[in-house]
């Protein structure tokens, strides 16, 4: 099952709102379960077992290990474990968006929503560039492994500078080349055509979108109520 871009974006924003509002771990587990279920019925690759295991581990660390751990360890781990854990619903929603949205679909939807073309194009290219960036980073790391780039530099601070430079320079160079080549490819395919583009994959919001949006809204409202009104 695939939902609309807009639905995913609303989900991301609201899930982040819930994370910061909600303090009840049971509610959070409920939200996580719902998102995981949604991932399971979404496109292939939306469900990432590793992420879920990560979440469960953090949960266990916080509620099983912390009470029995020495105080120093707890104070060292508490902030990262708790903070990252509570943002997991949002991370999961971002994964959903990323795995279920085609770039062409995103562009078409944004154009319908009258987002300025400049924003849409830059965003499309940026989204497209993220996976390439990772690959490039690995290549540069390997190239650096093959050469002792900081040879002959004694001073640790300067060594660090040299390493930083060696990592950044090829990355920037390739980013610049890539962006030039991508924009050449984009303009020769009429990306700046002022007529409204069509999209084979564009669909208006459907019943499933409204259902998911409705559930999300209710959960958020529940979190708001818990925090600001009612029993608290």
């Amino acid at each position: 099952m695939t939902l609309d871009v807009r639905t995913y974006i609303v989900m991301i924003v609201l899930s982040a709102a819930c994370s910061s509002l909600n303090t009840d771990i049971l509610v959070e587990i409920g939200i996580m379960t719902a998102i995981t279920l949604l991932q399971l019925i979404s496109a292939k690759g939306s469900f990432m077992p590793k992420l879920l295991i990560c979440y469960v581990l953090m949960l266990l660390t916080q509620f099983v290990l912390f009470p029995v751990m020495p105080q120093t360890v707890v104070s060292l781990l508490s902030l990262p474990v708790v903070n990252i854990r509570s943002f997991f619903p949002t991370i999961m929603c971002i994964v959903l968006l990323y795995r279920n949205t085609k770039v062409s679909q995103m562009t078409a939807t944004f154009t319908r929503m009258h987002v300025p073309k400049g924003v849409t194009i830059t965003l499309a290219v940026a989204v497209r560039y993220i996976p390439a960036l990772k690959e490039e980073w690995l290549h540069i790391r390997e190239a650096m492994k093959m050469r002792t780039v900081s040879a002959g530099v004694r001073d640790p601070f300067r060594r660090m500078c040299r390493r930083l430079e060696c990592q950044l320079v090829p990355l920037f160079v390739s980013a610049i080349n890539t962006s030039d080549e991508l924009s050449a490819a984009a303009v020769t395919r009429g990306i700046d055509d002022p007529t409204a583009p069509t999209c084979r994959n564009y669909k208006p919001l459907g019943l499933r979108d409204y259902t998911v949006l409705f559930i999300t809204a209710i959960v958020t409202a529940f979190c708001v109520w818990r925090e600001y009104g009612g029993a608290a």
Partner: peptide
């Protein structure tokens, strides 16, 4: 189909 979509076909 990207180019055709941009053209609004």
């Amino acid at each position: 189909t990207y180019g055709l979509e941009n053209r609004g076909m």
